[in-house]
């Protein structure tokens, strides 16, 4: 059996590697799940705490990337559910279908700058149902369909279909505005 000191050392090393490699993606995940800056800072800490603890139990049955995204999304999902429980007037989550309907009803502004476009992108993601949110985040992080399926637990075909619709939604919401801004 591995001695406790060695295990904790390898846990610390693995966590440092994860924080270095996925730190930015984890920060974006926290941003996509929490709009309030103070709560976002707490959520970031919660994610890093869960990852550090989880690093001690990482068994290599899936890739490190899948493991990291699963932990981050699960912590953030738990945070979202907790928030909806404490905020009595929390708005209901949107499904991809609702977001598509809204996108077709809205007039896309012709001119928005990059920060506004980014705010709008996060605004859209923050309103989605957690499973759809996980797909869109993993997609934006450049993960392939198999990895997204492994993280979310959806079938590859379902991931493909969701990604197709997400792309369509993003194009409709950001294509014209972003082109002017970039």
């Amino acid at each position: 059996m591995e001695p406790k000191a060695d295990r904790s050392e390898s846990q610390d090393e693995l966590y440092q590697k994860v924080a270095e490699e996925y730190g930015a993606a984890l920060a974006r995940t926290a941003y996509a799940y929490e709009a309030d800056p103070d709560l976002r800072r707490d959520l970031s800490q919660e994610i890093h705490l869960a990852l550090w603890r989880s690093c001690g139990r990482f068994n290599g049955r899936c890739s490190l990337r899948t493991w990291v995204y699963r932990v981050a999304h699960n912590v953030a999902t738990s945070h979202v559910v907790r928030q909806t429980r404490s905020k009595k007037s929390a708005p209901a989550f949107l499904t991809l279908e609702d977001a598509e309907v809204q996108a077709s009803d809205e007039n896309v502004e012709i001119s928005v700058d990059r920060s506004q476009a980014l705010e709008r992108l996060f605004g859209l993601i923050q309103r989605l149902d957690p499973p759809d949110r996980q797909v869109i985040l993993a997609y934006l992080e450049d993960l392939d369909a198999d990895s997204i399926a492994e993280i979310t637990g959806l079938s590859v075909a379902n991931v493909w279909s969701k990604v197709h619709r997400i792309k369509d939604l993003l194009v409709r919401r950001f294509h014209r505005g972003a082109r002017n801004a970039l």
């Binding site: 730190g23 930015a24 941003y31 476009a117 934006l140 369909a145 792309k167 993003l170 972003a178 970039l182």
Partner: peptide, 27 residues
């Protein structure tokens, strides 16, 4: 299925966020 076939650079925009990532030491 990377997202580089998205018409606009939403991907670039996305990657711009997260630069001010919070860092936590093991201690």
């Amino acid at each position: 299925m990377p997202c580089d076939d998205l018409p606009d650079d939403v991907k670039t925009l996305w990657k711009e966020a997260g630069t001010d990532r919070p860092m936590f030491s093991v201690d």
